[in-house]
Amino acid sequence: MTNFSLTNEWNNVLLKVKKWARINSPWLIHYNSGSCNGCDIEILATLTPRYDAERFGVKLQGSPRHADVLICTGPVTRQSRDRLLRIYEQMPDPKFVVAVGSCAISGGVFQGCYNVVGHIDEVIPVDAYVPGCPPRPEAIIDGLVKLLTAIQKGAPVEPPAITQLTEEIYDAA
């Protein structure tokens, strides 16, 4: 497979389709990197019948490989820092991160604790912040909707540049 590039026109159409699909079914993965559980139960409550985030196509996923959006709660502890990075790296591009709760945004009450490395955006880039201790499920939905709107309004997200390695894989195929 030597000629992989599409014409510009077709490429644009493809990107639009991808964006449409992405906005209509964002799959989430949730990681607690040192939270007190308050935010986690509210995230779970967001998915249950009263708030029903599934009407936005939102689905909580178990595997980082299937997820588009990483929802992080809590400050980052020394031990979970590597895990958080690993989960982030395992997610396919393009990926988005939502930091939920005061601790995820600033460290909250746990600022200065010896086992806390810092807040989420000191470890991985964050696209949306949901403040609150813990934020209400409505706030979490709002955060998600804001993220999705931003994706919709923004330029189509380019797929990652084809690296040497992927080219080799295609060539071998």
Binding site: T77, R78, Q79, G112, C113, Y114, N115, V117
Partner: peptide
């Protein structure tokens, strides 16, 4: 409870353990 890479001979609940120093060392 502590991570595996925690420095040896550092015990957080001893009185001389100082949170600020520890943060700087991170």
């Amino acid at each position: 409870f502590l991570p595996d890479d925690w420095p040896a001979d550092t015990y957080p609940l001893r009185k001389e353990f100082n949170t600020e120093n520890q943060q700087a060392a991170n």
